[in-house]
Nucleic acid binder design. Structure first.
Length: 861
RNA sequence: GCCUGGGUGGCGGAAUUGGUAGACGCGUCGGACUCAAAAUCCGAUGUUGGCGACAACGUGCGGGUUCGAGUCCCGCCCCAGGUACCA
C-alpha cells in the first residue's frame, strides 16, 4: 500500500480504539475537567444524515484537543429513543417499538463509530431502558412531592390522527409538528407541570449563560414577562368585580369598554336576558373553534353582554363585551379596552362604534390610529402632563391606596402539559386509589411498560396502556387497597431533560447521579445541538435542573454553561429555469403563476448577470439556490456514501471546512474532493510517491524557516480550535502542507508536530502517520504542540505605504527599526513610487501605526 | 407587524481592537507528464481600460464620521430563522 487508502486506515484505527478503550473517561479527579456534550439523537429508521456529523465532529475536535491539552474529558453519547415514529410503525406492522428502537440504535451506533468519534462507549444511555427511566420516574416523583405536578381537566391540543394530546409547542399553525395532522381543542384529564413557578428564575439566570443571544432572546420572549397592574372594575348591579391585567395602567382614563374572554367565568352571570341568546351562541362557537380557526379570522368579533362596569378612577359606566380576541389563558382573561392607545382595541372600537378617548398626546404629525409611543398624558385628570413612566407609577400608587388594584407581573409562559396518550413513553409512577391519585413509593420503581396486544388507543379513547388490563389493575403497596395505574405516559422531552446527568455515573443505583462525580463534572462546559431546540428542550431541561438543584441533587443552577448551534446543511446548489405553455420565462415572472414547469439546469448552462443568474447568452433569469435536503426533492446526501468514496476523515474535514459551524451552508461534493486531495497531499508529504512505501522524513534539525512555518500553523490552529473556528484552522493546516511540499524532506520533529495538529480533525490518518513515524501508542493523549513565539519573528517587517489612504508601495523595514517612526516614514518618502505622488504637493499629516501601516496625507500646492 | 441573524469574486468562505479586501478550498483557463485519459504537478484567475509597467472602480442601496470604513453612525432594500390578537 503506497497511496492513502482511507477505508483500510480507518477500519484499523477504529478497531484499535475499541479494543484499547482509548477514550474511556478517566476516573481520577486530579486534572481539570472538560464536559463536552452533543444533543443525543433520536435513532430514526433512516439512519444518520449529514447534519448529525456536523455538530458531532465539532465536539469531537474539541474533545480530542482538550485531552491532548491535559484535561479529563467526558464526551458521551446516547439515545433519545422514546418517540412517535417507532410507535406508529408498531401500529402499522405490529412490530414492538422496542425491537424497532433496538435495531435503529445499532445502526446509529455503527454509523457513529464509522466516523471515528471519540465517545466513551461504556457510558451510552438509552431513555427507553428501564434502568434509565427508573430515574426519570424518580425525578417526576420529586416534582410531584414538591407540588409541581398536578392533574387538571384542560382543553388540550388533541390530534385525532395521532391519537394523542400535543403540547402547545408541538402544534404548528394548528397542525401537529409530527406528520402535519389537524389538531382540535378538547377538554381532558392531564398531568401538568408547574414550570410557571420557575418563570422568574428561568428568565434571570439566562443572563450569565454563554449562549447565542438569539437563543436567550427566544427564551425570554417565550417566558414573556410583562410588568403592569391588576385593576378591579366593579360590575354595575352585581357584587362581582372584573379583574384585569394591563401593562398600561396610565391609560385607564381612556378605558371606554371592557372585554371578557368567551371562557371567562362571569360571562354567564352578567349577561342580560336580551343579550343571552346572542352571547350563548357566540361562546359556543368560540369553544368549538380550534386555535387555528380563531387565528384565521382576521376580523374582530364580539357581542355586548348588556352589563356595565364602573371605571374606578372616574366612576364612568362602560359596557362589558365578550370577544375572542381576548385570550382566556393570559392575564385574567379580561381586559380594560383603551382603543386610543391599543391597536387591537382601536380596531374593535371602530367596528362596533365604541368611544375613543386619547390619553396620551400624539406628536403633531401623527396621522395613525392607536398611538402607542411616548407623550404626555391628556384627558387624565391628576395624571395630565406626565410622561408614561411617571404616570404609571402615580396611578399604580393611587390604585393601591384606594384598594382597587396593585402592581402585577405576568408571564406568557404556561404550565407544561406533561402527559401523552401513547404507548412508547415512560409510565407515570402514579396509581389511583378511591378516585384519588397517589405516588408510588420509590421502592416500586421502575414502573415498566406492560405488553399490549395493540398499540392504538382504545375505542373509548383511553391511552394504549389501558389495554393491559392486568397491569392497570393493581394494589396500593401501602394500604393493600385496590388501585388502578395511570395509563398516560410522559412526553419525549422527559428523558432528554436530564440525560446529561446520567452520563456522569451511568451505573449508579442510588439516585440519578452520584454526588461526588456530579460535583466534579458539572456543569456541561460545551453543549452543541440544533437551533430547533432553542426553546423546548433547553427550557424544559433548565426547569428540571433547577428543581433538582432545589432538591440538592445537583450543585449548579444551570446545566449548560456554553451552548452552540450548528447550522443546517442544505443540498447542493440548484439552478432552475421556468417554463410556461412551452415557453421559457424569467424566474421573476414565474412567481405566483400556476402551471409553471421547473426545469433543472446544470451550472454550465447559466452565467451571472448583474446580481442574478441568467441562461447563458440570454436575458432569461433563472433561480439559483440551495434547498433543504428532503427525500421528496431527492437531494439528500447520505454520509455512508461519502465515507465509502472519500473516507470518514474527508467527511469530517469537509463538514468543518465548509464555513462557520453556526451557519447554514450548501453541500458541495466538489468540496469534499478538495479536502480529500489535501489529505492525500498530507500523506505524500510523509510517504513520498514511489511504489514502495518510503518515509520522506529526515532526522535533522529543522531550519528557522521551517520552524516559522510550523509555529505559524500551531498558533493559528490552536487559537482557532479554542474559538471553534474550524474552517480557518483547516485552512492553516493546508497552508502548512503547501509550504512543506516545497521542502526536500520534512524534519521528523516538524512532521510529528503537524500530525498532532491534524489529529483532532482527521484522527484516522493522523494515527496512521503517527505510527509510521515510529510511535507504538495512540496519539490521543500525546502532548499538544506548544507555540514558541520566538520562531514567529522575522528579520524584516513589511509596511504598506499609503498616500491619501491609497496603497502606493510596499517597503521592508529591518525588524529592529520597525517601531522607529522617523526611520520608517523617512524610508517611505524616499520610494520612487511614493515620490511620484508627493511631487507638487505638501505633506499635511503623517500617520504611522507601528507594525501596521504608513499613510501620508498630502494637499496639492 | 415584532424579535434575532445575515448580505464580500462564477461558488463556499477569509480579513481577531477601524489599517494592504478576496486567505484557504472549489470552479474556470493555460501549461507539464501521458500514445491517450485519469491522477498529479506548475502558472493565471474581482471588474473595466491599456501591448505594457499601470490606472480607475469594487464588500446589498443612499448618506455621514475618519488620514483611512467590509468593519463605526443614520436612513432604506433584500434573504434566512423565530414569533404572532400575550392587553
Amino acid at each position: 500500500m503506497s497511496s492513502y487508502d482511507p477505508s483500510a486506515v480507518e477500519t484499523r484505527w477504529q478497531q484499535y480504539w475499541k479494543e484499547n478503550k482509548t477514550f474511556k473517561t478517566p476516573e481520577d479527579h486530579d486534572k481539570p475537567k472538560y464536559y463536552i456534550l452533543d444533543m443525543f439523537p433520536y435513532p430514526s429508521g433512516s439512519g444518520l444524515h449529514v447534519g448529525h456529523p456536523e455538530g458531532y465532529t465539532a465536539t469531537d475536535i474539541l474533545a480530542r484537543y482538550k485531552r491532548m491539552k491535559g484535561f479529563n474529558v467526558l464526551h458521551p453519547i446516547g439515545w433519545d429513543a422514546f418517540g412517535l415514529p417507532a410507535e406508529q410503525y408498531a401500529i402499522k406492522t405490529g412490530t414492538h417499538p422496542r425491537e424497532t428502537t433496538e435495531k435503529n440504535i445499532n445502526r446509529f451506533r455503527e454509523q457513529l463509530q464509522m466516523l471515528g468519534f471519540s465517545y466513551d462507549w461504556d457510558r451510552e444511555v438509552n431513555t427507553t431502558d428501564p434502568d434509565y427511566y427508573k430515574w426519570t420516574q424518580w425525578i417526576f416523583l420529586q416534582l410531584y412531592n414538591k407540588g409541581l405536578a398536578y392533574e387538571d381537566e384542560v382543553p388540550v391540543n388533541w390530534c385525532p390522527e395521532l391519537g394523542t394530546v400535543l403540547a402547545n409547542e408541538e402544534v404548528i399553525d394548528g397542525k401537529s409538528e409530527v406528520g402535519g395532522f389537524p389538531v382540535i381543542r378538547k377538554p381532558m384529564r392531564q398531568w401538568v407541570l408547574k414550570i410557571t413557578e420557575y418563570a422568574e428564575r428561568l428568565l434571570d439566570d439566562l443572563d450569565d449563560l454563554e449562549w447565542p443571544d438569539s437563543t436567550k432572546e427566544m427564551q425570554r420572549n417565550w417566558i414573556g414577562k410583562s410588568i403592569g397592574a391588576e385593576i378591579d372594575f366593579q360590575i354595575k348591579e352585581y357584587d362581582d368585580k372584573i379583574r384585569v391585567f394591563t401593562t398600561r395602567p396610565d391609560t385607564i382614563f381612556g378605558a371606554t369598554y371592557m372585554v371578557l374572554a368567551p371562557e371567562h367565568h362571569l360571562v354567564n352571570k352578567i349577561t342580560t336576558d336580551e343579550q343571552r341568546k346572542e352571547i350563548d351562541q357566540y361562546v359556543e362557537e368560540a369553544a368549538n373553534k380550534s386555535d387555528l380557526e380563531r387565528q384565521e379570522v382576521k376580523n374582530k368579533t364580539g357581542v355586548f353582554t348588556g352589563a356595565y362596569a364602573i371605571n374606578p378612577v372616574n366612576g364612568k359606566e362602560i359596557p362589558i363585551w365578550v370577544a375572542d380576541y381576548v385570550l382566556a389563558h393570559y392575564g385574567t382573561g379580561a381586559i380594560m379596552a383603551v382603543p386610543a392607545q391599543d391597536e387591537r382595541d382601536w380596531e374593535f372600537a371602530e367596528k362596533f362604534d365604541l368611544p375613543i378617548i386619547r390619553t396620551v398626546q400624539p406628536p403633531e404629525d401623527f396621522d395613525g390610529t392607536a398611538y402607542t409611543g411616548e407623550g404626555p398624558a391628556i384627558n387624565s385628570d391628576f395624571l395630565n402632563g406626565m410622561e408614561i413612566a411617571e404616570a404609571k407609577e402615580k396611578i399604580t400608587a393611587w390604585l393601591e391606596e384606594n384598594g382597587v388594584g396593585k402592581k402585577s407581573v405576568n408571564f406568557k409562559l404556561r404550565d407544561w402539559l406533561f402527559s401523552r396518550q401513547r404507548y412508547w413513553g415512560e409510565p407515570f409512577p402514579i396509581i389511583h386509589v378511591d378516585g384519588k391519585h397517589k405516588p408510588l413509593p420509590e421502592s416500586e420503581l421502575p414502573v415498566t411498560l406492560p405488553e399490549v396486544d395493540d398499540f392504538q388507543p382504545t375505542k373509548s379513547g383511553e391511552p394504549p396502556l389501558a389495554r393491559a388490563k392486568d397491569w392497570v389493575k393493581t394494589t396500593d403497596p401501602e394500604t393493600g387497597k385496590e388501585a388502578i395505574r395511570e395509563t398516560n405516559t410522559m412526553p419525549q422531552w422527559a428523558g432528554s431533560c436530564w440525560y446529561y446527568l446520567r452520563y456522569i455515573s451511568p451505573e449508579f443505583d442510588g439516585g440519578p447521579v452520584e454526588e461526588n462525580e456530579e460535583k466534579y463534572w458539572m456543569p456541561v462546559d460545551l453543549y452543541v445541538g440544533g437551533a430547533e431546540h432553542s426553546v423546548l428542550h433547553l427550557l424544559y431541561a433548565r426547569f428540571w435542573h433547577k428543581v433538582l438543584y432545589d432538591c440538592g441533587v445537583v450543585s449548579t443552577k444551570e446545566p449548560f454553561k456554553k451552548l452552540v448551534h450548528q447550522g443546517m446543511i442544505l443540498g447542493e446548489m440548484e439552478y432552475t429555469a421556468f417554463e410556461k405553455d412551452g415557453k421559457t420565462i424569467s424566474a421573476d415572472d414565474a412567481e405566483g403563476l400556476d402551471e409553471v414547469l421547473r426545469i433543472p439546469l446544470s451550472e454550465s448552462d447559466v452565467e451571472k448577470r448583474g446580481d442574478r443568474f441568467v441562461m447563458k447568452g440570454t436575458e432569461i433569469t433563472v433561480e439559483a439556490r440551495a434547498h433543504k435536503m428532503s427525500k421528496s426533492r431527492g437531494n439528500v446526501i447520505n454520509p455512508d456514501d461519502v465515507v465509502d468514496q472519500y473516507g470518514a476523515d474527508s467527511l469530517r474535514l469537509y463538514e468543518m471546512f465548509m464555513g462557520p459551524l453556526e451557519q447554514v451552508k450548501p453541500w458541495s461534493t466538489k468540496g469534499v474532493e478538495g479536502v480529500n486531495r489535501f489529505l492525500n497531499r498530507s500523506w505524500r508529504l510523509f510517504l513520498g510517491e514511489g511504489e514502495v512505501e518510503q518515509l520522506n522524513i529526515t532526522d535533522v534539525e529543522p531550519t528557522l524557516d521551517q520552524l516559522k512555518t510550523l509555529h505559524e500553523a500551531i498558533k493559528k490552529v490552536t487559537e482557532d480550535i479554542e474559538a471553534m473556528r474550524f474552517n480557518t484552522a483547516i485552512s492553516a493546516l493546508m497552508i502548512f502542507v503547501n509550504e512543506a511540499n516545497q521542502w526536500d524532506s520534512v524534519p521528523k520533529s516538524i512532521a510529528e508536530a503537524y500530525v498532532l495538529l491534524l489529529s483532532p480533525f482527521a484522527p484516522h490518518i493522523a494515527e496512521e502517520l503517527w505510527s509510521k513515524l515510529g510511535h507504538k501508542e495512540s496519539l490521543a493523549y500525546a502532548e499538544w504542540p506548544e507555540l514558541n513565539e520566538e520562531y514567529l519573528k522575522s528579520d524584516t517587517i513589511d509596511y504598506p505605504v499609503q498616500v491619501n489612504g491609497k496603497v502606493r508601495e510596499q517597503i521592508q523595514v529591518p525588524a529592529d527599526k520597525a517601531k522607529d517612526k522617523e526611520f520608517v516614514i523617512g524610508l517611505a518618502k524616499q520610494q520612487e513610487k511614493v515620490q511620484k505622488y508627493l511631487d507638487g504637493s505638501t505633506i499635511v499629516k503623517e500617520i504611522f501605526v507601528p507594525g501596521r501601516i504608513v499613510n501620508l496625507v498630502v494637499k496639492p500646492n
